[in-house]
Amino acid sequence: MKAAPTPVTRLFKVAAAIFFIYTSVGCDVDSSNNTPPVPTTGLVMYAEANLHESEETAQIAAAVYRDGVPVGLIGGDVFEARTTTQRVLLKDSGSYDGSYAAPLVIDVVQDVFLNVVHEPIEARDDRWYPVDLLNIDPGPGELVGKSATVSFPPEVIITSPASGAIYNSPLDIVDLSWVAIGAAGDAMRVLSLVSCTDGLTRSSYGTVVDIVDDDGLEAIALNNFIFDVNEGSAGIKFISDAAQALLQELLDQLSAGNIDPDFVSKKVEANPISSDCEIRLFLQRQRKGVFDASFDDGLVIGSRSAEVTVNYVSPTPFN
């Protein structure tokens, strides 16, 4: 059993990495506001949990926004993520503004219940001093008692392409196939993390490809991942901040913490089209959860993911 891998967090991180790389190339992405796509009016709940293939720990992230601005939990108010057998407080800062995160062991795939609770002592127990003796408790805040439920969709099983498949042109097609066992309403997408080298310099970035149907097959042109810096990247959809953060977290989990924390934010120095690139494809199935009726709106997503790595080899030797 792994110590505490965190699939959702990793996925966030991968997405985050991709975004950073994109901005460094000069694409028109506004990176000034690292928030998920939530409504800008009202009290809004945002929560996301991802369980990666073969991992036993999901990374849970949650936040509350009021009129688009993160609402900080203070004074011992904290998100609690709970299953029937496991429980954790989300005490770490999440990868996007105003979010809180923690890994939660998912020994049996089941719903995760998120509640805002008031735990003045447990919320402080990472501090060094006797927090049960010395704490100033302002009492429960207004968000205590609010809740949401995250449901995981069926697992993702990729059947093709084979890991290590090689492509030589941006016009090549990646025939991505998977076991189509999702339910109606589940959404699919591919997050990619592309790492390139031209022998002298390196580049890495992330992209996202939305998949219309969970029908088990998607033909994706390689130019969704590989582009020519000199000709621009209009055809590529770089991942948003929240997904970028998720992807970075996922990479961190998969590498047991041995990934550069800025891996996804490296500058694009090597032109991908004339480089050799490793393309890690994270196929993700998402399912919407439910949030407390006291929220004006919300976005609660449970997801599961699987990964396959393919390679792009430039037809022109870079030396």
């Binding site: 203070i74 004074g75 704490n135 100033i136």
Partner: peptide, 19 residues
């Protein structure tokens, strides 16, 4: 003597406590 100061935000001020 151990003293702890805490601060939350503008609307929920903290304070000091000691033992």
């Amino acid at each position: 003597e151990l003293e702890v100061e805490e601060y939350f935000n503008e609307s929920v001020p903290g304070g000091k406590t000691s033992a």
